[in-house]
Amino acid sequence: MGGLSGASGAAPSPGPARGRGAALKRARRLLGAATVASLLLTPSPAPGAARTITMSGASPAQAVVADLAYFYRRERADAPRFSLVGGGTGIGIADAARGIVDAGLSGRGLEPGDPPGLTFTPLARSAICLVTNPANRVPNLTRAQLQPLVSGATTSWAQIAGAPRRDAIERVTFDVTSAARNVFLTTFVDLATPLAPATTYTASAQVRDHIAATPAAFGYVDLEFARRLHAVPYEGVPCTRATVADGSYPARRTLGFVTRGRPAGALARFLAWIRTDATARRVIASRYVVP
């Protein structure tokens, strides 16, 4: 610590014999020392201080928020740290309602059954894509084809027009609390259609990995998770950012942040940056559609 007193003391004026270059060199050296001193003297945040924005919930939202947090921290010297964990939409909303996290990451807007006093702030517009293994490039699915496919009446890919495969269909789905499942059912499945047994997962990455490794699989995932799979057009409309943006693809959803009351403090500043900053909007547009 001895060096600190020297760094904060008055700098002697440069003598005339030294010249401009020497003065600049010394100024640079002093500036460097002062910087080190200020770094050392900057008090570290008190334990428990709100220097970390905490979030939990939906994995699709988690991925894009991780990217946003990277650029936010790069652009803002005073940016807080971020702590992002998964858990799914339901856990994100419950954690936000209980104050366990600053914001829950949600794959849907708020619904009547959710805890009271919550606020939803949109992050991005996304979609739920119908997907198959990349080796099974089904050209299209209609609503009429989907009902027996979901109910189990259609058992083989040979029964689907244009499907390259001929073997038995392996259905993959999300658990009953999933926001993706809700979008899938409300958009594609008639109320009267029963649901055939399917391999059930709770996380988007699990569904993606299962379908990527299973040639005869059929399921649905978030737009971002469909990249490594074959996204099957629905009624001739492909599942892409463009069709989400122009509203022609029907299974759209909004990813967002759920907070207890209105966002405040560091979180509010981060959300404002997402809403207004050009870099943030580019990050969102690289995966989804800017709301």
């Binding site: 939990s56 998964g86 858990g87 339901g90 856990i91 658990d175 609390t177 709770t202 996380a203």
Partner: peptide, 20 residues
Amino acid sequence: AELRAQLLQHATRGSVPVSA
């Protein structure tokens, strides 16, 4: 926090009145 999130996310959903 991640241990907790993974434990909850991969819990089997059912009709019992718990969150995960």
